[in-house]
Amino acid sequence: MSFVWTIAEQHDGKLRDVSFELLARGRKLADKLGTKLASVLIGDKVGEQAMEELIRRGADEVYSIQDPRLANFVCESYARVLTRVIKTYQPSIILAAATSSGRTLMPYLAIKVTAGLTADCTELDIEEGTGNLLQTRPAIGGNIMATIKTPDHRPQMATVRPKSSRPLPADASRSGKIIAVPVTDDMIDGRATVVGYRKDATDFVNVEEADIVVAGGKGLKKGDNFTMIRTLADSFGGVVGASREAVDRGWIGYPHQIGLSGKTISPKLYIGVGISGSIQHLAGIKTSEIIVSVNSDPDASLHKVADFGIVGDAFQVVPEIQRRMDRRNGGAK
């Protein structure tokens, strides 16, 4: 069998969007190989509807592996479960999301099943003739693109960044099979346990899964000026990001940091305000679809990688953009 698999992600029984993005990637590969696409869903009490949704979004089969002990992501148990189903069904390709769980599970699993694994792929294709998976990923801060393959080991595994592909539209005419895989005690590794979640963290943000990110840097001059960035991000329906300089100055929390020592993002639109564009910051934004920069320094590196740059004072330009957005959003002001 040369199945293509995707690892669906759920939280509190609800599917994450990235599950559908992976199916779009997987569908293309499965069609090229002339094989089936399956999605593996590990969790607890995930309803039939969610599985039907996976089928409408491109899956031919859904492996449903559910147990109260699998409700939350714990690397060791999820790896045991997958090791079991991989040995049983022998997929050729497995795609997972480059999320906090995918980037933990896949390297742990790759060792258990002796598979090759490539992180953060931006492009996936099938090699003519051999049927090998060609995986392209940025390295050295996005300055080179490496194409990698795993000729002699199966499965071939890859992680893909959230938002780097668009889900297929739901197609209600698609049909598929849901296969419930029974969970046995030996699939549960009871060593690490989830004690809880803390969501009360003030000013928490998930920059990796946002469609639009408005980020501020040193050019904002002080922390209070992030208010302007927040308001603009809100009117775009986006979230706030920041450069390392802004985070190190204590202007905004670490979860907002974008770049080599923070998050790597691939949104539809990134707007950098008062960010010079250090090589570390650029590494975190290079795969954005559209890059806009606002900086008074005409030589700022961010202008050089931008699709649209405005050389001007952020405190004049941002309020002007804000006025247009307010007008569009119903003119609150």
């Binding site: 996005g142 080179i144 693109m145 290079k286 890059i291 005409p298 931008a306 050389v311």
Partner: peptide, 17 residues
């Protein structure tokens, strides 16, 4: 299999304000 060096710039437009 291979290493490519992507273009540094996107050839975007920069306007002065």
């Amino acid at each position: 299999v291979k290493i490519d060096t992507p273009k540094v710039t996107r050839g975007g437009k920069v306007v002065r304000a």
